[in-house]
Amino acid sequence: MKVTLRTDVLTNNNKAADFNRELFESTKTLVVNIMSSPGAGKTTLLEETVRALAKKYRIAVIEGDLATERDADRIRAMGARAVQINTHGGCHLDARMIAATLGELDLDEIDLLFIENVGNLVCPSGYDLGQHHKVAVLSVPEGNDKIPKYPQMFMRTELVLLNKIDLLPYLDFSVEEARKDLSEINPESTLFPLSARTQEGLHEWFSWIEGAYVRCVRQ
């Protein structure tokens, strides 16, 4: 007997994402899903973000980076709540993992929730977690070819944080070329060159968060 389904493979994920989204909206929590290759600087950027914004906002971070508590500890040291998800070696976070974690967080008491996805430029891009915004971090040492090589990631992220610009003098990375490649894949996305190390350019990212928070609360 043949049964026709025509069901999206990610149906169950998307149901969980909708569940998360409703929760985030009803509690007015701004949720940002941060993706990059391993070592691009997600945790360092989040440390700096918590340091700069913790006085004004109640911040929590969900850490999806593989099986250690190391990144969560770094965030806690900066004064934010951090919950570690163990993906058991899995290559991405899915919406059900996030839903299962939300019990540990009192969303009514949180203004900004950042999700540090598993370090990987391929797999996390297709999974809706229910977030308001998807942000990619690309670091200068990874090279200019990453944007055209991983279009599935960059076509789905509205903001790219180009990190480690303090290293530009030592490398042949071209910021202009990155902007051009990005616009050819996703004309609606924005790129902020910055350095979590020297703090250069971080204010643009912080203002972006503040703007996104205002829009999230007004809805």
Partner: peptide, 26 residues
């Protein structure tokens, strides 16, 4: 690779129509 780049106009003006489907058909 450059998903939005129209080969004719050479500007990023493309919209994906198909190719993103991932379904269990039957």
């Amino acid at each position: 690779q450059k998903i939005a780049l129209c080969p004719n106009c050479n500007v990023p003006s493309g919209k994906v129509l198909t190719g993103e489907t991932f379904q269990v058909l039957s």
